[in-house]
């Protein structure tokens, strides 16, 4: 009976793995094909079915005709995503701690309303924000700059950080703060020396969400930049032309997804320990 369940488990994992990995394999093989290899019927095995070519990869780093330089957008994307995630995480964690531990009251407005206010920023469709952001960045002279994008992304990522962290702090008993204060900590020290070390799993989850949403955003990267600054998603889309270059799209998609996979592997052990839902 146990062997049967083991078999079932292995089978399920295999099916799911195939489901997840297949698109990557597809993209990987496609990225080494030429136009002929893609459109000339199904081909699978390199050197037998088709002749592998580095043309698509070279086109992403080259400067020849029909090629782009993907390194610049890649670096811009990393800068914007990491800076915005970091700022959101710092501000969001502080805000969430306040919302979790202290009561705020302004007339009928209380803590849960404030939390909802943060989260509600993500309820409206992004297009609603496009024009205000465009105008505001214009006034500040930050259109088409990395700094402008960072500011906009903080506005997008902060609600996620606050939301995740409020939930997480609520699972940490208040007695922990109280004990720390009785042991001689100021409230800030209690947060810094006792609560924060216990909030690492929450920080990891919030950080991952921030990085994923920041890295994948196309809409604002597209509407708020023109020529000087280009983020990776925009650069990839701009590869498209009258003939869709599946090979270079595949290659650039792989480049684009690699950092997220690296992040996932790096933080996996923290997730394992802390579980996504927080410490129950």
């Amino acid at each position: 009976m146990r062997a049967f369940y083991l078999l079932l488990k292995v089978a399920a994992i295999l099916v799911w793995s195939a489901f997840v990995i297949a698109p990557f394999l597809w993209a990987l093989t496609t990225s080494f094909k030429t136009a002929n290899g893609v459109t000339g019927g199904p081909t699978y095995i390199p050197w037998v079915d088709y002749q592998p070519s580095l043309a698509a990869w070279q086109g992403l780093f080259g400067s020849g005709a029909g090629s782009i330089d993907i390194v610049g957008p890649f670096i811009s994307s990393v800068m914007v995503t990491l800076s915005a995630s970091l700022v959101s995480l710092v501000l969001g964690t502080l805000a969430a701690y306040g919302l979790s531990r202290f009561s705020y009251k302004a007339g009928p407005v209380g803590n849960s309303d404030l939390t909802f206010f943060f989260v509600s920023q993500r309820i409206m469709p992004p297009v609603v924000l496009a024009i205000p952001f465009f105008l505001m960045l214009g006034w500040l002279g930050l259109l088409d700059t990395v700094l402008g994008l960072i500011i906009v992304y903080v506005a997008l990522l902060l609600p996620i950080a606050v939301w995740v962290m409020v939930d997480f702090f609520n699972t940490i008993p208040k007695e922990l703060d109280e004990t720390a204060m009785i042991d001689g900590c100021t409230p800030i020290e209690a947060f810094w020396r006792v609560i924060l070390p216990n909030a690492v799993p929450g920080l990891v989850v919030a950080g991952i969400f921030c990085i994923i949403f920041g890295w994948n955003d196309f809409f604002f990267a597209f509407t708020l930049t023109f020529t000087q600054t280009q983020l990776l998603p925009v650069a990839i889309v701009s590869l498209n032309s009258s003939v869709t270059p599946w090979w270079s799209l595949s290659a650039s998609a792989l480049i684009s997804v690699t950092p997220l996979i690296v992040v996932a592997f790096l933080v996996e052990r923290y997730l394992d320990k802390g579980s996504i839902g927080g410490r129950k």
Binding site: T179, G184, C185, V194, N198
Partner: peptide
Amino acid sequence: IPAARRNIAQVFQFPVVYPSK
């Protein structure tokens, strides 16, 4: 005067330890 500067020890109903330490 806040709790931190009263030099008092308090043991709660549910055991509180610093889990990360």
